[in-house]
């Protein structure tokens, strides 16, 4: 983990002067671990069904809390990514072929966990002709049929191919999420194989689709972006048709990843969340521990019911 090598930035309140592990994170980045007896059943189920979660792969600090609440974000299409984003803990390399039985097992896991709203994401599969869109579609259908759950997909950009975006939309997910992750200027250093405009185009394509899912995106803060740049992204997302945006603190998986440039204070998260609502977003969870799918089911439940086409009422 090389904690000692990962120095605290000067602008953060913890100072870094002490140099000790104690002071690496500001007070607002402290979580409480859940009792292990509430986490273990979820872990056992995932292991039994051979399923991955982005919670574990990304070392998400909310994992314990979410697992203890009996929820998880499934990561399909393997655990190896074809891109090298500098913020992400998922390893790059040569991925395995898609597992045709995976959609069924995701639905089975959702059913056994009693999930009414299921978030499904994936690694980026630039090696597959359809970018993995077929597996997303099959998983959405399996969840609708097998688990009667509403489905939120958090997709890669599919290289910007409209037919792949459409293939996912044809399976009628209730929420279509694609994260822009950061501001346009930082793409070369944070998402080197991605393109800001391409990601916006994916969102706009989804927003214009007949199945009319809720369009959602998200950003990590603390990578060195300015407030004005965040404001510009929010405006772009609104223009693309986004109705929900999430803002959370970027945390580095290791010293080899993009450094945390800034620990953004809770106040600024609050102000940016309020700004997003003023700009027309219908929900804008914003806070240090907010992640793309954090408490996603509550957001869907709050949005107007008519937009959730398969609400399990």
């Amino acid at each position: 983990m090389n904690i000692s090598e990962n120095q605290c930035p000067d602008q953060c309140e913890c100072g870094g002067a002490a140099g000790g592990v104690k002071n690496r994170f500001p007070a607002w980045l402290k979580k409480r671990l859940p009792a292990r007896d509430r986490v273990e059943p979820v872990l056992a189920l995932l292991k039994e069904l051979g399923l991955g979660t982005v919670c574990q792969e990304a070392h998400c600090p909310n994992t314990g809390e979410c697992f203890a609440r009996g929820t998880a974000t499934f990561m399909i299409l393997g655990r190896v990514c074809t891109r090298d984003c500098t913020f992400c803990a998922v390893p790059g390399g040569r991925p395995q072929p898609p597992d045709p039985d995976e959609p069924r097992r995701v639905a089975l896991a959702a059913q056994r966990l009693g999930l009414r709203h299921v978030v499904v994401t994936s690694v980026t599969r630039d090696d597959l002709p359809d970018g993995g869109s077929g597996q997303f579609a099959a998983t959405i259908r399996a969840l609708h049929e097998g688990a009667s759950a509403t489905v939120e997909v958090l997709t890669p950009d599919f290289g910007g191919r409209r037919e792949d975006v459409d293939r996912v939309l044809d399976a009628a997910p209730e929420v279509f999420n694609h994260n822009v992750e950061t501001v346009a200027r930082l793409y070369p250093e944070v998402r080197p194989q991605a393109d800001y405009g391409r990601s916006l185009a994916v969102l706009a394509r989804a927003a214009g689709s007949g199945s009319a899912p809720i369009i959602k995106s998200g950003l990590m803060l603390g990578l060195g972006e300015s407030v004005d740049e965040v404001r510009a992204v929010l405006a772009d997302l609104r223009r693309a048709g986004c109705r929900v945006v999430t803002l959370g603190q970027y945390l580095a998986p290791s010293a080899a990843h993009h450094p945390v440039v800034e620990f953004v204070e809770p106040d600024r998260f609050e102000r940016l969340g309020a700004l997003a609502l003023e700009m027309g977003f219908e929900a804008a969870p914003s806070g240090p521990f907010v992640r793309s799918s954090y408490r996603a089911e509550e957001i869907v439940a709050r949005l107007p019911a008519k937009t959730v086409t398969r609400a399990d009422a």
Binding site: M1, I3, N6, V21, K22, R24, F25, L29, K30, K31, R32, L33, A35, H59, C60, P61, G64, L251, A252, P253, S254, F289
Partner: peptide
């Protein structure tokens, strides 16, 4: 009740008494 504070690469954690 919080017993101990720990740190991983992503956050500080407290572990409660069982």
């Amino acid at each position: 009740q919080d017993m101990v504070e720990m740190v991983t690469d992503k956050a500080a954690f407290t572990v409660p008494a069982p």
